[in-house]
């Protein structure tokens, strides 16, 4: 049972959202509001630190979408530029929110197919780079699943 204080604390996460992302996060359709807000703040914090967040620790979005976005961001190699750059970071987070909406819509359209393959991420010209993300299904052709898993 929630105490009044616990309930207040639950709402308090909304205060942390930057103004530019507030309405987008509030009215986003993926996931539960407070989990979403906390997740977005995790993304933002990591990006501002110039790092990709750890997929296992992210509370939002769902894992399969999350991994796809992480692979895409890794491929774009944009994260290093986000370091302490609030405006750029918020713009990237905004794109992540859009990306999650698209992925969710796509998943809905192909209901019954339980995986979401990001062909665009696969097409990135990143053959020479290692990825930190495991790719058990071999979806991303630039990854060596066995070596990635051992990292």
């Amino acid at each position: 049972m929630h105490s009044l204080h616990a309930l207040d604390q639950k709402f308090a996460i909304l205060d942390e959202l930057p103004e530019s992302l507030y309405a987008l996060v509030i009215t986003h359709s993926h996931g539960e509001l407070y989990q979403r807000a906390a997740g977005v703040m995790q993304w933002r914090e990591s990006l501002l630190a110039g790092e990709l967040p750890c997929a296992q620790q992210l509370s939002w979005p769902e894992e399969h979408i999350c991994l796809t976005i992480l692979k895409r961001l890794e491929a774009l190699d944009i994260v290093q530029y986000c370091h302490q750059q609030e405006e750029l970071t918020d713009s990237v987070v905004e794109s992540i929110l859009d990306g999650v909406s698209s992925a969710e819509e796509f998943s809905r359209k192909i209901a019954g197919v339980d995986s979401f393959d990001d062909k665009q991420a696969q097409r990135q010209n990143i053959r020479d780079r290692d990825s930190a993300f495991e790719d058990h299904d071999g979806l991303s052709d630039h990854l060596d699943s066995s070596s990635a898993a051992s990292n």
Partner: peptide, 21 residues
């Protein structure tokens, strides 16, 4: 705040949320 009195009920926070919707 814990008891919902004084600054305990953050009216502005929820006002902003409802207004956004």
């Amino acid at each position: 705040s814990h008891m919902g009195i004084g600054s305990g009920f953050n009216h502005e926070r929820l006002e902003k949320l409802v207004h956004t919707w």
